[in-house]
Structure formats: structure tokens, C-alpha cells
Amino acid sequence: MEILVQLLNALPGSFSQGLIWGIMAIGVYVTYRILDVADLTVDGSFATGGAVAVILILNGCNLWLAMLIAFIAGLLAGAITGLLHTCMGIPVILAGILTQLALYSINLKIMGKANQSVNVNKTDLLVSLRWVKELAFRNPLITVGVVLLFLILALYWFFGTEMGCAIRATGINLNMSRAQGINTNFNKVLGIMLSNGLVAFSGAFLAQYQGFADVKMGQGAIVIGLAAVIIGEAVFGKIFKNFALRLLSVAFGSVIYYIVIQTVITLGMDANLLKLLSASIVAVFLAVPYWRAQYASRHMRKQKGGKENA
């Protein structure tokens, strides 16, 4: 019973955190599902977003402007990865790792040290974990929820435009895209930029929410993003077919992920083992479609063989 109360108490917190990471997961969805590349820049650009936002806020910058600049910083980080990949022929995974490593130094330079805090008592913030249980507009659930819905609508619109369709086509079929006059390299860069813009935006939210930006805050972000994408698809894939709803399911996937994590911590699991748990879950879920295909083909062979013998 006590555990249940504890869980319920923690619920608003994990819900808010899940929504914030949900924005990042949607960014991962853009590269992983739409562009069909695994972009590891995320781990660095997430912290970049947080660092940029915190420093700007500490210097008295308008909060929404700080968010916008964090978004732009993410776009730039993505552009680096995209250019390393398309102009220098570096495989996209490696390009992402290189950018991520470089961003570690850049994030340190932005903040001047490994972490920077913003105190919600001294500065105005958009979101803070202090407010998670308040019945007010400044509750992070409302702020982040509204922003998330707005972003989903904006992405829904964008991927329906000529430019957005070209990015989708690039992710699905490179040969066809080029034959239809689509500059596939340009679109890859654009997609990776957009993805990292969203990731940095999410990092900017999280830094305010937790009250500090840390150079390591993005560590393992890609795994959380993938987990959210996979959980979202597994849970809502059958009912959510529309593109906007699919993005929403990714955000929900992230919320579910945080609730599960909160639950296992409350149940007494060693918090040091969390990343091991996340990685294992993602590994298994990534393997499921592969195993299913293997099982199906073996099944087919058996059936065929059976017929021949009969």
C-alpha cells in the first residue's frame, strides 16, 4: 500500500519528465523511422540544448527566445553530422559519434564548467519540477503538453509539404527519390537537422525542469529515444495509423518508459542498473521483428518441405 502511494505521488513527475523526453523521442523518430538512419548526435545535442538555454536564461534572455535559440543550436549540430555524412562520406553512425564527441567540448565551453544551475526562486522558468503537483497553468504537464501538441501539428503540416514529402521519400527509397529529381543528400542533412533541433529543444526544457544543465545530461538519450519509439509503436501501433497520431504515440511511449522506470525504482531496484535495464529492453524490442521474420521463413520452409514429402 505504501508503495502504491509512493508511486501515485511520483506519477505527475514521471509524466512530465516523460513528455519532455517525448519531444526528444519525436526527434529520434524523425531520423530513425522517417529518414531511416540511426543518428547518435542526439546524446550531444540534447545537452547542447540544455546548456544554451541555461546560459541564455542566466543572462536574462527571454525564455521562449532561449528555447528558440536552443532549437537553432540543435539544427546546427545536426547540420554538422549531416555534412560529415554527405560531403565527407562518413557512415552516418560514425558521423553522429564524431559530432557527439565534439559537442562535449563545445557544451563545456558554452557553460564554462561541467554543469550550470538555474534556480527557480531567482529566475523565471517555463517549467520546473517544483510545480508538478500544482493545479495551475504553470504545471509542467500543461506547458509541455501544449508545446508538444503544437510541435506535433507543426511536424504533421511540414511532412505534408513538398519539402517534407521529399524527406520522407529520401528515407524510403534513395534510387526512386533521385530519379524523381530529389536531392537526397540535401534532404538527409535537412532531416538530421530537424531531428537534432527537436532534441535540443527538449534538452532546453529538461534543464529548466530539473534546475540545471549538465554536460552529461544527454548520455544514453538515443537509447531512451529508441525505447520511446519502440514502446509507442508496440502499444499504439495497431490503433494509431495517422502520422500525427503516430508522433503522439512516440510521446506516450516516452511517458510509459518513465512510468516503468519510476515503478522499478520505487519497487527497490538499484538505480545504478537502470541503464543496463534500458539497453536490454531496447535490444530485445529491436530483435523482435528480426526473430519474427526468421521464424516465419523457417515455418514456410517446413510447410513446403512437408508438401514435397507428401
Binding site: F158, T161, E162, M163, G164, C165, A166
Partner: peptide, 17 residues
Amino acid sequence: LALAARRGKRRTLRTGI
């Protein structure tokens, strides 16, 4: 088909179809 209809044209932020 809409992708093909825009072959050789600049792809803008106008609706895809």
C-alpha cells in the same frame, strides 16, 4: 504521383498534394 509531378521543380513549403 505527387512526388513525380514535382520532378525538376523546386520543392517548397507548399502542400505536397
